[in-house]
Simulated assay, not measured.
Amino acid sequence: MHTFFPEIKPYQRHIIAVEPPHELYVDESGNPDGIPVLFVHGGPGAGCGKFDRRFFDPQIYRIVLFDQRGAGRSRPHAELQTNSTQKLVEDIEFIRKTLGIDKWVLFGGSWGSTLSLVYAQTYPERVLGLILRGIFLCRPVDLLWFYQEGASRLFPDYWEDFIQPIPEEERHDMMNAYYRHLTGDNQIQQMTAAKAWSLWEGRTATLRPNQEVVESFTEPHRALSLARIEAHYFVNNAFLEENQILRDAHKLADIPGVIVHGRYDVICPLDNAYLLHKAWPGSELNIIREAGHASREAGIVDALIRATNDMAKDLGERPDQLA
């Protein structure tokens, strides 16, 4: 089994101003002359974490991490103004140009897979390859499954805690009810809602209970941006047209890709990955038998690191792709 590469520190950090009021945190680590790879975090709103640069061999990859608008170390924190999928796609392209990168690999999980796919469909000529985990197509059916009815039947005890902050008369539309609480003027109500929203996600992210994952989701700074930005995106159908990612899958035809998905992923059920794989002939689908959604589960880590190693080898055999 492959495990995380040793911890490394960035060799360069940037604050990149994009559309006001947003400033993005970006850092680079690994080999400055290596294969450029962009880590695209989940949520939206989760920000990058301490394990995220450890999926890549630092001798081979130039590893770029960034916190999306309102997330992590980007400013202002949890900001919803001018925060949409299309804005994030343009932010990624602006980062590429700012760092002087011609083409790069995109590595994204959950919402990070969504954003990576939309970027690749918008700028296919800039993508060397895609490594994606926990595919999230962001269709209305996917949002209703996790935030209204579906996952609630698998975790009725956790669901009871999730609905608790919402008055009974508002529970017929949990996403909009949470959005109202998360964007209201009452800061105590806002934080209570943020913690409950994030706790629901953290508890259901792994096949086996994992307190460390739960704690990372419910840490107050992260919980607020995660809950506010996710609710903002999801009440707007992630700012995507209906079935947009599968509809535009043909634009990925010349891009090699690896899909890693847990068999028992409750947040983003396996049909997301299966349908994408069928619509994208150049993709390889790895279903991880004993895993849920989280990137830190052993089988997921193993498959993702195998994928980064294999892609580096493949790109090394096709140096024209890197020119």
Rank of each mutant, 00 (worst) to 15 (best):
D173W: 05
A253M: 04
L143T: 10
L226N: 09
I188F: 12
E290L: 10
P36Q: 04
A238I: 14
A249H: 15
I101H: 09
E242P: 08
S29K: 05
E284F: 06
P76F: 11
A223L: 03
T85Y: 01
I135W: 04
P165W: 02
D57Y: 06
A17G: 12
V141K: 09
A151C: 06
D102T: 06
L130Q: 06
L38R: 09
E19V: 04
W104V: 03
K9E: 15
G34V: 11
Q81E: 12
I300V: 15
T218V: 13
L99M: 08
V266S: 15
M1F: 15
D57C: 01
D91K: 01
L285Y: 10
I163A: 06
S110M: 14
L315A: 15
I63S: 13
D67I: 05
L224K: 00
N176Q: 09
V37P: 15
A151N: 08
H293N: 08
N237S: 12
P10S: 11
V105K: 04
A231H: 07
D302P: 14
I188Q: 14
P269T: 09
P36I: 00
A78Q: 06
A312I: 00
H41W: 08
K251D: 00
K313Q: 10
D314E: 15
D314V: 15
P281M: 13
D91N: 05
G43V: 01
S110Y: 14
E160W: 08
N237D: 15
I163S: 01
D91C: 03
K87F: 07
L99E: 09
E297C: 12
S216R: 12
F234D: 04
P44M: 03
H277S: 07
I101W: 10
Q121H: 10
N210S: 14
F94C: 10
A227K: 00
Y264V: 03
A17Q: 14
Y61R: 06
R228P: 04
D67Q: 02
P256L: 01
V18Y: 02
A227V: 02
A196I: 12
V89S: 02
G282V: 09
P32C: 05
M311L: 14
P281Q: 14
V105S: 07
T85D: 02
L285P: 07
G184R: 09
C268T: 13
E241W: 00
A17D: 13
A196Y: 01
L128A: 03
H41Q: 14
R69D: 00
T82W: 02
W111N: 02
P124Q: 06
P156S: 07
A303W: 00
